[in-house]
């Protein structure tokens, strides 16, 4: 029998040195295809048929994860074009319109961020109504709530960075609400802003939190979240 081109490639020494497995046409090879791949090995080799039903999960957790990845990628690119200082931040935003595809880049980042707040919240709603938080999944629900808080914090710290009126007063209003905390309210606000008012210190703080601290924590918790989904036996059974 004549070999196809694909099969030829997938049997070549170079291909095999990278991917190990050939075309996954048997059960064993389908398993090895996932097992042997760094990126795919977080997935189980087989899944419950019902866990794949869109009407059960609505893919909301997966979409949240996808949006986080897209936000990281567009975020990296935006970091090349942005300076966290009150002299430059706003003008860097304006200059984005002049950069090739700069506007689309910013729009993608902005709309993905709003979308992620929405999908993470809806994911929580789905998990509640399917009662998927029941043992052994209790703690994964708790991790989920932390992820929801982190998602809001990421979105909120990013909100200040364009340094326009919307950003400035949005953060002023939000941190004023924080200062209503009894006794230590003023201190909390000062701790958040690094000063009594929103200014250069706050911009720098929010920038570091938004680009380094919070994404790192979120990625870490997401890794634990996914690991636990598998350790708890995959997607929960229907009600």
């Amino acid at each position: 029998m004549k070999k196809g081109i694909l099969q030829g490639i997938s049997e070549s020494a170079v291909w095999r040195s990278i991917f190990r497995t050939g075309i996954p046409d048997t059960d064993l090879k389908k398993s090895l295809f996932i097992f042997n791949s760094f990126f795919l090995h977080i997935f189980p080799v087989k899944m419950k048929r019902h866990g794949l039903r869109i009407s059960y999960t609505f893919c909301l957790g997966g979409i949240s994860c996808l949006l986080f990845i897209l936000l990281t990628l567009t975020g990296f690119l935006l970091m090349f074009l942005y300076t966290p200082s009150i002299e430059r931040a706003y003008f860097d935003m304006q200059a984005l319109a002049l950069v090739y595809n700069g506007k689309i880049l910013r729009n993608l980042h902005r709309w993905s961020a709003h979308g992620m707040v929405l999908t993470v919240f809806l994911h929580m709603v789905r998990v509640f109504y399917t009662r998927s938080y029941r043992p052994p999944r209790e703690f994964n629900w708790v991790i989920g709530i932390l992820l929801l808080i982190l998602t809001l914090a990421l979105s909120y710290t990013g909100y200040l960075l364009p340094w326009d009126q919307l950003a400035y007063w949005g953060i002023t209003v939000g941190t004023t609400i924080m200062s209503y905390t009894p006794i230590i309210g003023k201190q909390i606000r000062f701790f958040m802003l690094g000063a009594d008012e929103v200014g250069h210190e706050a911009l720098l703080r929010f920038y570091v939190l938004h680009c380094v601290v919070l994404p790192f924590l979120t990625a870490l918790l997401m890794a634990i979240h996914f690991w636990r989904v598998r350790k708890d036996g995959g997607i929960s059974d229907p009600l």
């Binding site: 897209l70 009150i86 706003y90 935003m93 304006q94 506007k103 689309i104 910013r106 729009n107 993608l108 980042h109 902005r110 709309w111 993905s112 979308g115 364009p162 340094w163 326009d164 009126q165 919307l166 950003a167 400035y168 929103v198």
Partner: peptide, 17 residues
């Protein structure tokens, strides 16, 4: 997301004051 970003721009108001 691409369609959304093509047709709707993220807001940018006047500089913070």
């Amino acid at each position: 997301l691409f369609l959304l970003s093509l047709f709707f721009d993220a807001p940018l108001e006047d500089i913070a004051n």
